[in-house]
Amino acid sequence: MKRLFKTYLEKPELAGLILLVLLIILFQVRSHGVFLNADNLRGILGILPEAGLVAIGVTILMISGEFDLSVGSVFALMPMTMAVLMVHGAPFPLALLAGLLVCAAIGFINGYVTIRFAIPSFITTLGMLFMARSLTVVVSGGFPPLLPIDLPNWLFTSFVGPGNMFRMSFLWFAAVAVLTSLMLSRTNFGNWIKATGGFLPAAASMGIPTARVKIICFMLCSVLSGFAGMLQVLRLGSPLPSIGEGLELQAVAAAVIGGASLTGGIGTVMGGIIGTTLIRVIDNGLVLSHVDANWFKFAIGFLTIFAVVANAWMRKRAKAIKMEG
């Protein structure tokens, strides 16, 4: 049992990975080999980065012991900000910078309010979910602005790689995944994030600036969500104010399925990515195996509950082990 507990703490994403492999095999068989063909994979990999980047941010924030429900709204607000600025003549790089700054500011407000007033981040970011969505519609004036035609799609959405398998967005996603993973496991800041979420009093008593650590995680989460929203808008070619609705819950589901703990301290970037991939695979695989696509949300819901129950059980075991001696 100790071994199992340890494996779970070191590789909380393992269970999700096993499930992912099983589902891929299942869908491959059920779809008579269509699931893993190049066209279908290209489709999955093309949209994976958008949900994946959000999940990375949410996972890291959850490891630090907090929660963000506003990611779906920030996902829409960031590209809308950019579109409106570009309509008014701002060049793309400037609009990009402004959009990311808006995200950073929202993340800062989420974190600052949560910590300053010692309220649950669930509430702060629930409020921000409504506010950011509202802002998105207000700045758009009700009509999605037209994007200029000379956007740097080559940098974000063009197909690249062998057989044009990936979009550029996938490379951004991969780069962010590697960097955040290394940050979490190989830097002192990653150590502070895990300590802050793992046991706040201990982290604080060892002199870690826990408030600052959390606020930075909030900001990172918002910036990654906004960036992901921009990728989606560039892919779709239009900044709809309704994009990203429900994404916040999918991202939390992805993090949890990937082994992140709701109480903080446990989780990996890889887990968040595996969780997201699992969700995308189920979405796609159900369609390909001629199952009514409305079962999609049922499957995600079931998986989430299953993952949390499994997590809670593991934590109870962990506590039992701690009480020994």
Binding site: G198, A202, S205, K322
Partner: peptide, 10 residues
């Protein structure tokens, strides 16, 4: 401290 200044998950 009595509550232990260690993070159990690390």
């Amino acid at each position: 401290y009595q509550y232990n200044s260690m993070v159990p998950t690390m």
